[in-house]
Computed example of a mutant assay.
Amino acid sequence: MTDRLIRNTGLSGALVIGLGSILGTGAYVSVGLSASIAGSWLVWAIVIAAVTALCNGLSSAQLAAAHPVSGGTYEYGYQFLNPLSGIVAGWLFIVAKSASAATAALAVAWSISVLLTISATSVTVIAIGLLFLFTLFVLSGVRRTNWLNALLVAVSLIGLGVFVAAAFAQPSALPETPPTPSSLSLFHAAALMFVAFTGYGRIATMGEEISEPRRNIPKAVVLTLAVVSAIYIAVGLAILHVGGISSFDESRFTIASLLANPDWRLLVVIGGVVAMSGVVLNLVLGVSRVVLAMGRRGDLPRSVAKLSSNGHAAPAATWVTFAIMALIALFGGVQSAWTLSAFTVLVYYGITNIAALRVSAEQRFIPKWVSVLGLISCFGLVILAALA
């Protein structure tokens, strides 16, 4: 039995993992949630979040190339800072990304309940069932998961393309209650949008499984963020074109509800359900790799570090991940879970940037000011969003 995962994911696979991790809750829920806060300043909130994500993504790529193992900033904290930093980062990641997965699962469950006119009381059961289903997919091995990822990303892009085209085909409308955004609400919205960009973290946490990590990880991170930034801005402009969103109601909200044509609405709902399912899939995979790394170091019971006989899966770590996500889905809602994810992930990436500043000059391929800007952006958004 091997104690290391097999490197069987190339650049295209890493890119698909990144897109599959992002294009879901971010595009179908977070942009709308941020629109209800930022109002006409939505695009600026997206831009601020994108710049923050780019700095953090480059810091993550720098670290992943210098120390290509599974575990993300948990491992980087140990390697470049100190054990306490690594442990704190590990728990922040687990909480943040488990909350993101719970958000996606709950959003899918709400969409299904509305689409099939199922009682709202079944939403939590559907969400936990979805988490269970994708846990089984992850246990089947990362190579098979990549094929499913490609399908999920394609359907997600089709749904978003339909939304943008259909929204701009409608007459321009003014919001029923024009929002009066402030600078604090702008940064609050940017903080919520930032977590919608952080799928690149799945690429870094899978450093042990990606071939030629020094070359493929940075390329996959930059390409992922470039594509997603363009998509979010297009979706944001489309939302503003049809009048924006005055309030967020998780029991009935989806960007599809902004479309007048019922056929287009149905297609966008389907695209959202598929896309957010892809988010759940990738988050179960990414979080389980951090749980795996913490088990290897003894910060969690060492039993969670056991791998399958072929080295393609980590069953114990994956089931622990499922349990944490299911608990958050059981006791939280879409908006509260997403807010928890936003604040914890910003602190997590603050530690990432500090670690990136400690990479040696010989291994460095990004200037230090990028990590400094990322650090300031992360903690600045945490403080400003808390004051909003």
Score class of each variant (00 low, 15 high):
356 A>Q: 07
22 I>W: 01
91 W>Y: 15
225 L>W: 05
343 F>Y: 15
123 V>W: 00
364 R>L: 06
298 G>L: 02
342 A>Q: 06
131 L>D: 05
302 R>F: 05
295 G>T: 05
11 L>P: 07
368 K>Q: 13
336 S>Q: 14
371 S>T: 08
234 A>R: 08
339 T>F: 00
281 L>C: 03
109 A>P: 09
62 Q>W: 06
138 V>T: 13
181 P>F: 02
133 L>M: 14
92 L>M: 09
351 I>M: 05
188 H>K: 15
143 R>I: 05
385 A>N: 03
227 V>Y: 04
50 A>N: 03
388 A>P: 09
360 S>L: 07
131 L>T: 02
332 G>W: 01
317 A>Y: 04
115 L>W: 13
12 S>C: 09
140 S>C: 08
356 A>R: 03
74 Y>T: 08
202 R>V: 02
300 L>M: 12
126 I>R: 01
48 I>S: 02
219 K>S: 13
48 I>L: 13
155 V>F: 04
142 V>R: 11
169 A>Y: 07
4 R>W: 03
89 A>R: 02
43 V>P: 07
6 I>Q: 15
116 L>P: 10
154 A>S: 13
149 N>I: 00
165 A>Q: 12
388 A>W: 08
239 I>D: 06
136 L>V: 10
360 S>D: 14
100 S>M: 12
323 A>D: 09
45 A>G: 11
156 S>R: 00
6 I>Y: 10
53 A>R: 01
157 L>P: 09
381 L>K: 02
244 G>C: 07
153 V>Q: 05
279 V>H: 01
13 G>M: 05
95 V>I: 15
296 R>H: 10
74 Y>K: 04
73 T>D: 11
141 G>K: 04
218 P>R: 07
348 Y>T: 10
127 A>C: 05
36 S>A: 14
384 L>I: 13
171 P>I: 06
349 Y>Q: 15
368 K>N: 13
357 L>G: 08
342 A>G: 06
251 S>A: 13
76 Y>W: 15
146 N>E: 13
160 L>D: 06
77 G>W: 08
303 S>M: 11
218 P>F: 01
108 V>Q: 00
264 W>K: 13
39 G>N: 04
277 S>M: 13
302 R>L: 08
186 L>D: 05
51 V>Y: 03
54 L>V: 12
116 L>K: 11
284 V>G: 06
98 S>A: 12
147 W>H: 14
1 M>V: 10
284 V>Y: 08
317 A>T: 10
51 V>W: 05
337 A>F: 01
256 A>K: 03
289 R>P: 06
48 I>W: 07
225 L>D: 05
6 I>N: 14
274 V>P: 01
40 S>H: 11
143 R>C: 03
162 V>F: 04
107 A>L: 00
30 S>F: 00
256 A>P: 09
369 W>G: 03
343 F>K: 11
359 V>N: 05
246 S>L: 05
325 M>Y: 04
235 V>P: 03
90 G>P: 04
200 Y>L: 10
283 L>T: 09
69 V>T: 14
55 C>Q: 06
171 P>M: 04
84 L>Q: 14
321 T>P: 07
326 A>S: 14
115 L>A: 15
53 A>K: 03
296 R>Q: 12
153 V>W: 02
11 L>F: 14
223 L>S: 12
18 G>E: 06
26 G>C: 02
170 Q>M: 13
257 S>D: 10
78 Y>L: 15
239 I>W: 07
306 K>H: 13
206 M>N: 14
14 A>H: 08
88 V>T: 11
197 F>S: 09
